[in-house]
Design a protein around this nucleic acid. Structure first.
Length: 466
RNA sequence: GGGCCCGUAGGGUAGCUUGGCCGAUCCUCGUGGCUUUGGGAGCCAUGGACUCCGGUUCAAAUCCGGGCGGGCCCA
């Protein structure tokens, strides 16, 4: 089975979503999938609070008049917005659109909120729903029409302060994806592929098992490109009224799609402990006329929950094997099997999701169990990360000239920044340029001579993308 | 934007070419019961589908047209 078929099946089999809702590209979040997404959101909230961003919530509808103010922006999104043209049976004088992203909703308000240099920096974010009218090739979490979306929006006194925000965003990105055991590439998008209205865009890309990359997030420096049309100015200490410089950082439910794709095997998905709805599942082994295993397990569950772990006790009237398959498919990291034998000797049988059946079993003492489990979860997360890093490294292929390259996975070449050279390389490879490969701190990762003209340049990455 | 394909119980399928042997196949699943629980148990009973509208015909899951829904390829 190829990756596409596997992915389409697994998102439903693992109980993440139901694709039978009768609108293409709009799926129903199942409770289990929604729990995972909410945990991902929690990681974002934690990072935002840590960095002094304030959460807010804007309306979903934007009047056409506001949307149309920034010319590049409207050009970039015009073809993929849903329009609200009627109120009841009356046609609206000013049509409204369902936000594809929130710049044009927020910035008229920013213009009102920002008065003085003491109002800056303004650091905000929201987690909500956006809409894009995708027509072809929708895929659960990866390409959808209704998007669970995170976006931070900031405003600053000048270019340099906005640039410092970009650097903070890169640190946030680093911690966030580390918690997901999900290695990503950073690439500065070429000018012809940056976000509509941005001064520059840094893309965050993951490598899926299909060999395609998927953009999981983007960090934009807007300069004053939006501040001018939306008239966002402040009064500085000299009584002048300069425009603010702005940034955004966006991510979506695609992060979940990448977790599903990257951390998986033929038994199902493997969730990182940071977002697993249940980090541990307890399966009782019940013997007729035996001791009260169920009561014992429930008590142990309560103790582990009190110790801060997310634990599920599976007391369903099914055979144990059935439950094992059920929770493996859904990616629960650890499973405790407890029967009369374990009760007797005050131990638990531990099965570890990412290890082969033979190696993935050991006995733990009930004494100090919560700490032992935390240790196992950390080791598990580290193994997920290591495996994903190896897969990513193995997926990058370096060449000196595009015309000699095998266009497979991610292709690394040198580029001089000349657009003609870049597009020529895209054509040879039949791939998209992700951009200049960046280190985690946002600086170009390595120098490399241009594939086309031989001039000095930087390493750039190409791939087939989602 | 251009082209191709598909739609049968909750899921997966057989049947469609050549209309009638369809009171629609098989697996899975749901429900009730008995029996069971250390890697997907068994038996019995039972439940559930031809995407919609129109047309052709004595007769349509099957042929034709349209709607709706879904998938894929190319730009």
């Amino acid at each position: 089975m190829d990756f596409n078929d596997w992915y389409n099946d697994i998102v439903e089999e693992a109980d993440l979503c139901d694709k039978r809702y009768p609108i293409k590209g709009m799926n129903v979040w199942k409770p289990y999938g929604w729990k995972v997404m909410k945990h991902i959101d929690s990681l974002i909230h934690r990072e935002m609070e840590r960095t002094d961003h304030d959460e807010l919530a804007f309306p979903v509808l934007i009047p056409k008049t506001e949307f149309a103010k920034e010319a590049e922006h409207i050009k970039g999104f015009d073809a993929e917005v849903y329009w609200v043209t009627h109120g009841g049976t009356n046609e609206l004088d000013v049509p409204m659109l369902l936000r594809p992203t929130s710049e044009t909703a927020m910035y008229p308000m920013f213009s009102l909120w920002v008065r003085s240099h003491t109002d800056l920096p303004l650091k905000t974010y929201q987690i909500g729903t956006t809409f894009r009218y995708e027509t072809k090739m929708t895929r659960a979490f990866i390409r959808v029409r209704q998007i669970h979306f995170f976006e931070s929006h900031t405003a600053h006194v000048d270019y340099d302060d906005a640039q410092r925000q970009i650097e903070e965003d890169l640190e946030i990105k680093e911690r966030f994806f580390n918690d997901l055991s999900l290695p990503c590439l950073l690439a500065k998008r070429p000018d012809w592929d940056k976000f509509a209205g941005a001064f520059f865009t840094i893309g965050i890309d993951a490598l899926m098992p299909s060999g395609r990359t998927m953009q999981l997030g983007s960090i934009h420096h807007y300069k004053d490109n939006f501040a001018i049309p939306y008239d966002i100015t402040y009064e500085n200490e000299d009584g002048e009224h300069p425009y603010v410089h702005q940034t955004t950082y966006g991510m979506s439910e695609r992060v979940l799609g990448a977790v599903v794709g990257v951390h998986s095997d033929d038994r199902g998905i493997k969730l990182p402990p940071s977002i697993a709805p249940y980090q541990v599942v307890i399966v009782p082994i019940i013997k007729r006329d035996g001791p009260d295993v169920e009561g014992y397990c429930e008590k142990l569950r309560d103790e582990l929950i009190d110790a801060g772990l997310r634990v599920k006790y599976d007391g369903r009237d099914l055979r144990p094997g059935n439950k094992y398959y059920h929770w493996e498919l859904r990616g629960v990291p650890l499973r405790l099997e407890i029967g009369p034998r374990e009760m007797e000797e005050a131990t638990v049988d531990l099965a570890i999701r990412d290890l082969p059946k033979g190696e993935g079993k050991k006995k733990l003492q009930v004494e100090g169990l919560a700490d032992a489990i935390r240790g196992e979860l950390d080791a598990y997360a580290a193994r997920l990360k290591e495996r994903a890093e190896e897969a990513l490294a193995a997926g990058i292929h370096e060449f000196d000239r595009a015309r000699d390259a095998e266009p497979e996975g991610i292709v690394k070449l040198g580029w001089c920044t000349n657009e003609a050279c870049g597009t020529a390389m895209e054509e040879f490879l039949d791939m998209t340029m992700l951009g200049v490969w960046l280190d985690p701190d946002g600086t170009p990762r390595e120098e490399k001579q241009c594939s086309e003209c031989g001039a000095a340049g930087n390493a750039v990455l190409f791939a087939k993308t989602y």
